[in-house]
Structure formats: C-alpha cells, structure tokens
Design a protein around this nucleic acid. Structure first.
Lengths: 172, 172
DNA sequence: CAATTTAATCAGGGGACCTTATTATATTTT
DNA sequence: AAAATATAATAAGGTCCCCTGATTAAATTG
C-alpha cells in the first residue's frame, strides 16, 4: 500500500492546483473580457456546440442523451444559442415531434476556436516530467472511469463518447 | 524547449482528467443525494463556510474582500446560509454598519466535513508516482501563481491566504 | 380507434455571480 | 456642530448552469 504521507502531499497539491487554476481561469475571463463569451466548452451552451461540431444535425433529445442533460436544460441552451445565431432549429420532416439542431457557420467557427489550446503552465515542465504526468494521469483517469462505470454505466458510455470526440480533434 | 508532442499528450490527458473528474463528482453528488448539500467548498456558500471555519466572526465586507466577491454576492450567500442555519448574522456594536457572521455548530461541522478527504484515485499510484506528481504540481502551481500575481496582485494575495488556510487544516 | 409512449415546451426554482441604485451609519471637513 | 464624504449593507434585476413537474403534439401500439 502506498505511503499515506505521500498520498496526503499529492492530495494537498491537487487541491491547491484546483484552487489556483480556478483563479487563473477567472482572471483569464475577466481580463480578456470577450464580452458574453466566457463559457467553458464542457458546460451548458459550450457542451452543445462541442457535441454538434462532432455530429451535426442531432435532435434535441439526442443531444440531451449524449450530454446527460434533461430535455429542458437542453432546450434552454439551444434556444440561447439560436439567439446568438450559433445554431438553427428545424422540425424533422420524418418525425415531426423532433427538432433538428444544426450549427451555423459562425457556430462551427466558434466551436472550433474554443476547442484546442495547450495550457501554458505545461511550459514549465521538462520532457521527463511531461511523460511522468501523462503516465500518472492515464492511471488516474482509468481509475476514475472505473469508478464511474461501476456507479453509472450509462454516464460512463456517454462520457467515453464525448471524451473520444473531444480528443480526436485534439490529437489530429 | 520541451517536446511539443509530449506537451500535447499531457494536455490531452489533463483535459480528459478534467472531464472525467467532473463526471465523477456529479455522480458523487447525485448518488449520495445529501439533499441540498451538493456544493463545492471553493464556490459560493461553501467558500464562505470555509473562510469562516478559518476565521469566525468576520464582517460581510471582510468576507467579500477575502473571497474576491462583491458585497452583494456575499450577502446573498450569507442569507442562504442563515436560512440553512449554518451561520448567524448580528450587528456589530462597535460599528453599527457592520454585520458580523458566525458559524453555528452545524455550520462548523458542515465546513469541517467538506474540508478534508484524500481523493480515492490516488490509491492507484505508487510511492514514486506520488512523489513525481507532487513535484510536478508544485511546479505547475508555482507557474500559475506567477501568472496570477502578474495579472492581479490583489487576487494573488487573497488566493495565497485561502490556500494557506485550507492547506493548514489539511496538513495537520 | 383508443391507449400509450415520446419529443418538446411552459412554469418555476436553486445555485453562482454581477451591475446599478439606495439606505444607514460612520468619519471628515469646514 | 453642520455639511460633505466615505463605508457597510440592501434592494432590484440580470446572466449562466441545471433540475423537477405539468402539459401539448405527434407517433407508435394494441
């Protein structure tokens, strides 16, 4: 079993990392002041954009399912995106209950832009440390996947899907 | 200069870590279903509780300053905490403009409970990996502190304070 | 055709924050 | 001391992220 003290140290650093990065993010938003555009790509409207950039023309229900959101939340975010002219809604002709959501050009550009950039703080690490970090995170992620899968297989599948989608863009 | 490919790998893993941990957290909340009790200790009401557990009897203004919140947000959170009987408000006799906030017993217990527990996923790491992770996070955190300090010295000071407060409990 | 399931919407609510007034209660200045 | 200014807290209203419950419209089933 691993040394408890070492675990505690690492945990402390992780907590610190969480706090510090949170603040750094806030500063980034507030400073850059991109106006209404300060959303994380993993939440709310950003989430929708990301999903659509990977599979355009989904119905609201499909979006909700993939993103583990309720139909109502999904509708809310979609409507906001429509107002911003980032997506469009149209009734499916095949099944008139369904509403198909599509990215506009602007929406696609926005989604792409959000998507990828290497955090600057990785610049302070050596090659060796980067490898170590990658290996460690791989282990940690595997363990978390496990935990999630045990607790809620549905979420696990959805999560796998969106991680894969996101990282596919990221790595090519 | 570090290898770009290695940076990208690490960045990808970090992004994945972010997504996965987010989901794991949600499951923890939803599953445990502690009712109204699903707040991060670094935001909103939780933030207030944490600050008070470190220095009870602050005025709202002092809280706002320490936590980089507006007086209005602070008031909102405090009022919600009052409703939940986690804190009390009373007028300062020395300066009747001020309102002093104090933790109730329940509040103190809640704050303490929130505060410390080693994330389970650290169990999958070896001693060596724990050391590596600690070293890496130390570097990353230092770099983020730097960035924050440059951008906003005030926030930097406040952040230092709350990190110190939080970690003091954590390490003893 | 009647009953049921499904996709969306409406209404309403909680939590995190913010901006723009106002209202008390000091503290200064004249 | 009276007037002017600064400070602590409120009130009101907004945005964003999410959810539950109730209702409507269209499709599927029996």
């Amino acid at each position: 079993m691993p040394n408890l003290m070492k675990q505690r140290n690492a945990a402390g650093k992780l907590i610190e990392f969480g706090m510090v990065r949170h603040t750094a993010d806030e500063i980034a938003h507030r400073t850059h002041a991109d106006k209404g555009d300060h959303q994380s790509p993993f939440q709310g409207q950003g989430k929708i954009l990301l999903a659509l950039s990977q599979a355009d023309g989904l119905s609201q229900k499909e979006l909700a399912t993939r993103l583990n959101l309720t139909a109502q939340s999904t509708a809310e975010f979609v409507n906001k995106l429509v107002k911003k002219r980032l997506v469009t809604k149209e009734k499916s002709t095949a099944d008139r209950r369904k509403t198909i959501i599509r990215l506009t050009d602007l929406g696609r550009r926005t989604a792409t832009k959000e998507s990828a950039k290497v955090p600057e703080f990785l610049n302070v690490l050596s090659d060796e440390e980067l490898d170590q970090l990658t290996a460690i995170l791989t282990k940690i992620n595997a363990s978390l996947y496990d935990e999630i899968n045990t607790a809620n297989p549905t979420w696990f599948k959805n999560l796998q899907g969106s991680v894969a989608d996101h990282l596919r863009d990221w790595f090519l």
